[in-house]
Amino acid sequence: MTSLTKDPSQEVELAPLLEVRSLRKAYGDRVVLDDVSLTVAPGDVVCLIGSSGSGKSTLLRCLDLLETVDDGQILFEGDDITDPRVDAKRVRRRMGMVFQAYNLFPHLTVLENCVLAPRRAHGLRSKAARERALELLERFGLAEHAHKHPDRLSGGQQQRAAVVRALCTEPTLLMLDEITAALDPELVGEVLDIVRDLAARGTTMVMATHEMAFARDVATTVCFLEGGRILEQAPPDVMFTDPAHPRTRAFLRRVLG
């Protein structure tokens, strides 16, 4: 059950966990994703950057099968998950998703939010699910809030709880959709800290983010999206010091000031 982590000593080339091939998504005439290709190996932390409307969120939603794609393929753990015969539920059980607006269930306590999927979708026993959830809540400093309803918590606490909820199912791939965008600046740190912690433990993640310093810190690959395309894809030290594409340079100049 330690699929989340990879042994750092093991430096052999691993089979990709996720492979996106020429993905296309359009809403009517509006093309939101155009020929997007991306490979994610186990342990990778891929940061998607780009202005709003560039297709970052749509890409994540396509990966989680929340949207049907119009062309191209997504291979996850070797299976083509865009095949209509694939059971989306089973695929999503191996993935975790955290949304910008937390999307915690307001009628359940934090703990109940966390044990819902392990119990009802993964068939874990109540006791095991609670133990795992409490352990994770403890690790991320939320133990004292386990029995509160989400609306009683601060935004940062809610988002941390949402991350824990996604981790409780032990996903092999964790997707984060601008999870700090709705937070006060002073609360951003506590959420990014736990993502940093996850990255250090080798969690495979794909995240859309506006936090450039953070992306530079944790990413193994940074993708710059514009107009639904990945214009540039590079390790962070290259992307943030010597971007190849003029559009990337223009974007980074704008956001880094």
Partner: peptide, 15 residues
Amino acid sequence: IWTPSDVELARRAVR
């Protein structure tokens, strides 16, 4: 102009 790939056409047939 985009034309659906064979993969997409196969997917549509399955649907």
